[in-house]
Structures are given as C-alpha cells and as structure tokens.
C-alpha cells in the first residue's frame, strides 16, 4: 500500500464522521523506485491532504517532508523528489490502519488494506 492510497482511505463505518486520516501502524514497509512524473505530482497535489501524508511518512521513518506545503513549492525539484518518494515509493506491506474516532483496526496484509466491515458496522 502506497501512501497515496493511505491518503485516499477513510473509515467507512456507519455513523463515523471523523474517519480521516486513518492512523498508520506499520510493521513492515519497503521502498520501490518509481520513475518521477512531475505532471502527475502537480496534478494530484491539490487533492492530497498534506498533513496526513507527512504524518504517514513519519510513521514509517521518512521525515523529509515539510509540515505544510503549498502549490508554489511544486517548482522545486527537491520538493517534487521528496513528495514523489513519500507518495509513491514507500509501500506498507504489513500493519494496520486505525480509525481516529472508533479505534477500529483495518489490517494491512501483503500490502493490501482490508476495509471490509462487520455486519453491525455497515
């Protein structure tokens, strides 16, 4: 699971209003090099919740993202490289995503988060 996906996931339990961002508890993660595409990064940037990305990156030991970011930073190659690395090159293999409101844990196995709900949560 890339941090891009973490940034797009929120708790889907019925009645939960504050289900984003899910807290990342990573047990195992890997880095996989991916070709940088500046157009993609500039296009997706406005859709990214920056604090959630920076927080998730820190949770897996990458602290090279600024706490806050704005679109003007996209002119910097150095910023793009860090953004790219955090968003697409870090893969969480094992761990869990935890709902900030209910504490419900959604497991991540073999890089795949499981967002299936129990009957009483739908």
């Amino acid at each position: 699971m890339r941090l891009l996906t973490h940034n797009m996931l929120s708790c889907n339990i019925k009645g939960v209003s504050n289900g984003f961002p899910l807290r990342l508890e990573a047990e195992k993660w890997v880095e996989k090099e991916v070709e940088l595409n500046a157009d993609f990064l500039r296009g997706i940037f406005p859709k990214i919740e920056w604090k959630a990305l920076a927080g998730a990156a820190r949770a897996i030991g990458y602290d090279q993202l600024p706490d806050e970011a704005d679109a003007s930073m996209l002119d910097s190659d150095d910023f793009l490289r860090r953004f790219h690395h955090a968003l697409l090159e870090l893969h969480v293999e094992e761990g869990a995503l935890v709902c900030p409101e209910t504490g419900r844990r959604f497991p991540i196995n073999k890089g795949i988060p499981n967002m299936l709900l129990h009957e009483d949560e739908v």
Partner: peptide, 19 residues
C-alpha cells in the same frame, strides 16, 4: 495497482470522489 479489499469502493469513495 493499489489493491484494496472492500465492498465496491467503500472507504475510498469519499476521498476519491470526482478524481
């Protein structure tokens, strides 16, 4: 591809809406 075990797009549809 980023894979998610879920019902349709549950858990994704809020943040991925319109994207």
């Amino acid at each position: 591809a980023e894979i998610i075990t879920t019902d349709i797009a549950s858990g994704l549809h809020k943040r991925l809406a319109g994207m």
